[in-house]
Write a protein that binds this DNA or RNA. Sequence first.
DNA 1: CCTTGGGCATGACAGGTGTCATACTATGCT
DNA 2: AGCATAGTATGACACCTGTCATGCCCAAGG
Lengths: 201, 201
Amino acid sequence: MIRIVIAEDQHMLRGAFASLLQLEEDFEIISQVSGGHEALSMIEACKPDICLLDIEMPGLTGLEVAQTVRDRGWNCKIMIVTTFARPGYLQKAMNAAVDAYLLKDEPIEFLVEAIRRVMQGKRVVSPYLADSLFTHEANPLTEREQEVLRMVSEGGTTRHIAEHLYLTTGTVRNYLSSAIQKLEVETRHHAIEKARDRGWI
Amino acid sequence: MIRIVIAEDQHMLRGAFASLLQLEEDFEIISQVSGGHEALSMIEACKPDICLLDIEMPGLTGLEVAQTVRDRGWNCKIMIVTTFARPGYLQKAMNAAVDAYLLKDEPIEFLVEAIRRVMQGKRVVSPYLADSLFTHEANPLTEREQEVLRMVSEGGTTRHIAEHLYLTTGTVRNYLSSAIQKLEVETRHHAIEKARDRGWI
DNA sequence: CCTTGGGCATGACAGGTGTCATACTATGCT
DNA sequence: AGCATAGTATGACACCTGTCATGCCCAAGG
């Protein structure tokens, strides 16, 4: 019997997964949760064979849950199931040594098959993403550029950041300008988006 | 037999819906599609009793499909199934006289039950949204403010808009400033977001 | 040793953005 | 008619944003 925990915040999809997987004779859904913290509790309490994790959930993200499970050395297969094909997410998932990274755009049969493969000790990645596993571009941003970009993305104003880093506002703008050019975009906001997407901040 | 077409771009969810609804003895899934245009073709060709529509899909949105079905006077129940609780979307759906507006955050059983209710001629709206059906705030934006906001949202620069409307750039900025204040936000971009959300542009 | 290149830091500059005071018009109320 | 209100339109102002030229420092290589 393969014992499974499902963590997914969209209720309808979570329920659908549970019902469908339950139909497989050797699958047992032992718990369904809607957030990262509950997922961790359940994994600790129930020791499932497999945990399906969405990435964007309230509380902890699926990637954070995966990392924590690995850090604590728990013996549970981790499968990320997400909408997002972002290289940055995939990279983080790989760093956390997840057993599968599937897109919700795959057919549902793919999920069932992937679960069986993972139980055989194999790793599964959505075919669509297989390429980007190899083509990880290096981060072109310097330490300072990343720092400033991060702070802007957290809502800091130019002035606020300058004070916090003991710089003039002109210098902060300069880092942003530099980052904007390296990322080949027009505004700081687009720069943040792109850097996030690639996992560079 | 209730004949159903499903239009939903996320493959896994679409497949899950199909499999689960198929389990009901009196439901028949006659077609699954992933975009608005295909949905319209299928509705025309197969004359289903019910069509489940996602809103954000490639090609036509679910709301546009709903409106078209009504305009052409086709006799098909329309059920919107979406992630988004935006008042603007709900409003447009109501204007198109859809038979149901459900959030993907509802339990899956809710969908099955809703389908039966709709077949009995009832209308179904997610409980969470029931309130906002009555509390539709009036649009505080003037004609000009809406126009300028729309043009900015389509990527027009201040200068471009000014030329197009035969105004000075100062005047255009003034409308934006006014809209920004009415919407109680900080930037034109947030103003666009909020106005979109409420269906005011 | 000197040169080169890259990161760090600054301030000047041009242009964009939001606010404000102001003015004109039309509408509706007294 | 007199008045208040709301929409339209303008330009002045202060501030923000992105770019650029410049200089400093340090490490790698000739």
